[in-house]
Structures are given as structure tokens and as C-alpha cells.
Design a protein around this nucleic acid. Structure first.
Lengths: 231, 231
DNA sequence: TGTACATCAGTGAACGCGCGTTCACTGATGTAC
DNA sequence: TGTACATCAGTGAACGCGCGTTCACTGATGTAC
């Protein structure tokens, strides 16, 4: 047990991190599809088979990168959210939205890895579920705070019983937030990732040039729609 | 010249179509990353080098598939739009949104090819620009009709001069549509593709089960936001 | 503290595979006179 | 209508490349007594 924290264990941890760092760089430079165990091994200065002492397969390495990416967006969103006063809902939303977009622009391949097309032949294991949820919890907490503070109004929605059940299940992570508010929040959410993807994947090319202004304008609009314009 | 429509030309057209058909099937089954000239050639019953008589490179084959995909969404949107009375703006929007989502669900790999992460190492040539724009023109026409009919109200927006210029340029394809309406339309647009991607790429997994009801609810919300709730 | 044994990291070769693209060629189909 | 030539489609072999994964192995590091 003590040995687990001995030299061998420390070297192992360092090398694991080094492999990940190289893999991260390859991902950033070439994208997930071009990520190869052999190339990573070469850059680490190992023979390719040695990597198998650290990661059981290419998929496992990919999983590690996916978890990292989800954690990074989550962290960015949490930090941004925490940078505003708790009762400044609009400010928190805008800060969070900008932080997520900022992270995406700074790390386009990592963004594409988790929010773009699924990697062919790769099935996300259970390990990615919690990290994936992290960023969404920031939004849900925003809704919780807004409802608790009484600044977020419910609205009537008409929909299926099945969707009511879905929303009730989601409410476990957003206690007290009524369906109408949840639906507005989800709408903002899909808009946000839609906007970022649309921009990042080139669909605004030759249409919009002032990307930042366009995003800010739309993010503010979205904030008003979710939070109510009386803020 | 007459010979161009002779046997050789007809066989050539047929074989080109057959190669495309096989490529389309491979794309649908395996995704763009796994699309290989050699595999396509095998399935067509040709030697791989023979495909080069029809497509100069793998990228050119991919371009053809991209153009097809853009045309298919465009067609679906146009058909849906045309299925409603011209003055039923909300109906047209909803039909169009559903048609685009329906096409995406029926053709997930083709959707991912054009609206997902860019294919690494592939640069979209000029040929894809017009087909790509086709689907967007349906929305813009909707806005034009709404403004012309007087049912779409402008709103004040505050933004940069650069974005004003962008919007003015976009207005060439939507004569008479003021900035406020354009911005609402673009918001709906990014929401739509965001929602579809979010759903299709698995981010609603274990969150929403009644996908259809969820989409319809949100699409209706979006319609009200763009068109005004007085419809 | 010293020794025998077990664990582990890393090597190097190999397996089996697939890819895009080029090139010299054969034979069939079209064109010009 | 018949013949000589040009065009074109498709073949088969090759180039040069990279990949994930396995396996028997060496040598170093740790563990137990």
C-alpha cells in the first residue's frame, strides 16, 4: 500500500499524464479521427505497445480525453457562473454562455469531440456520463435560484404525459423548478450549443463577420426569453 | 456532340450514379470517416483504380455526397413549406422545422456530414456553397412573406456597426426584412439545428424519452418567438 | 540488512489489415474520311 | 459502308503509408521473510 505511493507509482502517474498531454495535443491539432496510439507513443518516446501498460485500448484513451473535455467545459461554466452575484441571473447566464463559447473557440477539436458528430465506432462508456452532466447542472442551478428568488415565472405548457414524466425526472436535479421554466431552460440550452456549433462548424462563414457581437446579441435575447424581460 | 448522348455517355452516367449510390449507402451505414474509395469500388464490382475515371479523388466523391445532402434537406424544407398556405406563417415554420428534423433522423450520417463536426482534412469547395444555402432561403422567404403581410414586427436591437453590415448583406436574400426580424430568424435557425444535433448526437439520452413531443413543444415556442405570439 | 522471488515497464518483432493514388497496359467503343 | 485512328473504360500490380493489437522477452523495481 505504501508502495503504491512509491517511486514506481509516481513515475506511472507522471507517464500517464504525459501520454494524455501528447494525446490532448494531437487531438487539438488533428482532431479525434486522426488520433492514433502509435503516433502518441512515438511522441512520448515509447514503443507503441508500451502504451498498453497505461491504456487498454485506443478507445480508453479517447474516453479519457472526452472526460477531460467535459470537465473543462463544466469548469469554465462553473467559474463564470460563480463570478457574478448569486441574484444576478441575467449576468450569470451571459457569463456562463460566453464562457462555454469561449472554451469552444479556444478548443474547437475538443468541443467537436464531445458536441459534434459522434466518433464512428466509439460507444461512450458509463464513465463519461457524470462529467457530461456537469455543465448542465450549472444551468439547472441557475433556474433553481431564479425560482427560489421568485424572479422566474412558470408558464402553461401543453404537451404529452410522457414528456411530463421526463421533466419530472429532470426536476430531481432542479428541485422546485416547474415544467414551464424547465422547458425554457432547455430551449436556451439547445440554442446555445446550436449557435456555437453553427458558428464553429463554419455555417456562418461569409454570412456573419462580427461573430462576437452576433453571439452577445443572441445570448442576451435568449437570457430574456428564459429569465423574463423584467430583469 | 451527338456522341455525348450515345451509349458510352449513358453508361458513364449510369455508372457514376451507381458509384454514388454505393457511396451513399456506405455513408449511411458507416459514416463519412469510414468512407473509402476502395470499399466503394469493391461493392460496385470495379477495381479501385477504375473509380478514378469517375471521381478524381476521395474528396471529390465526398463533395458529391455533401451536395446531395444539402440538396436533400433543402428539398425537404421546401416541400414542407409549400404544403401550407402562404399566409400561415406559424404552420409553415412548424412544417419546415419538422421536415428538417425528420430528414435528419432518417439520415443521421448525412446530417452529421453537413451539420456535424467538419471532416478532418477536407476543405469544402465552392460547389457546396449554393446547395448549402438552399435550406436557409426557405426560412428567409418566410420572413419576407411575414414582413410583407405585416404580421412580423421589427424590434430595436443594439449591436455593433459590423453586425449591422452583416445583416444588411444578408438582407440581399431577404428584401425588406429589418434587422430585428432577421436576428429573430437567425435565433430560431441556430436553435433548430442545435436542438436536432443535441438530440441526434445523444445529449438527450436518459433525459428526454418523448423526443417528438419535446421537439414539437420547443419548435412551437420558437415559432412564437420569431413570428410573434399574436399569430 | 540481505537474499529469493514476484511484479511490472518497456522492447522489438510480427500479424493482418486497409487505405489513396499512380501507371503501363489491353481491349472495346466511337470518329473521320 | 468500310477502314484507320483516336478516345476512353477498366485491369492489375505496385508504391508507400499507417493503423491497433498481441506476444515472448529482458531487465529493473519492489516485497516478504
Amino acid at each position: 500500500m505504501l508502495a503504491m505511493t512509491g517511486v514506481r507509482a509516481r513515475v506511472r502517474a507522471e507517464l500517464t499524464e504525459e501520454i494524455l498531454a501528447v494525446a490532448r495535443r494531437h487531438l487539438a491539432e488533428q482532431g479525434a479521427a486522426a488520433l492514433s496510439l502509435r503516433a502518441v507513443a512515438r511522441d512520448v518516446g515509447m514503443v507503441s505497445s508500451a502504451v498498453y501498460r497505461y491504456f487498454a485500448s485506443r478507445d480508453e484513451l479517447l474516453t479519457a480525453l472526452i472526460v477531460e473535455a467535459f470537465d473543462a467545459v463544466g469548469q469554465a461554466a462553473e467559474d463564470a457562473d460563480a463570478s457574478r452575484p448569486r441574484d444576478d441571473l441575467a449576468g450569470r447566464w451571459l457569463a456562463m454562455a460566453r464562457a462555454i463559447r469561449g472554451w469552444a473557440i479556444a478548443n474547437p477539436q475538443q468541443y467537436a469531440l464531445v458536441y459534434g458528430s459522434p466518433v464512428p465506432g466509439y460507444a461512450a462508456p458509463q464513465d463519461t456520463v457524470d462529467p457530461a452532466a456537469r455543465v448542465s447542472l450549472v444551468l439547472l442551478q441557475l433556474l433553481v435560484d431564479g425560482v427560489a428568488a421568485g424572479t422566474l415565472d412558470d408558464e402553461r405548457i401543453e404537451t404529452s404525459r410522457a414528456l411530463r414524466t421526463d421533466l419530472a425526472r429532470l426536476r430531481e436535479f432542479a428541485p422546485g423548478v416547474p415544467d414551464g421554466v424547465l422547458v425554457r431552460g432547455l430551449h436556451a440550452w439547445t440554442w446555445l450549443f446550436g449557435h456555437i456549433s453553427y458558428e464553429l462548424f463554419g455555417h456562418l462563414h461569409r454570412v456573419i463577420e462580427d461573430y462576437d457581437a452576433f453571439f452577445d446579441l443572441q445570448a442576451a435575447r435568449t437570457g430574456e426569453e428564459v429569465l423574463g424581460s423584467h430583469l
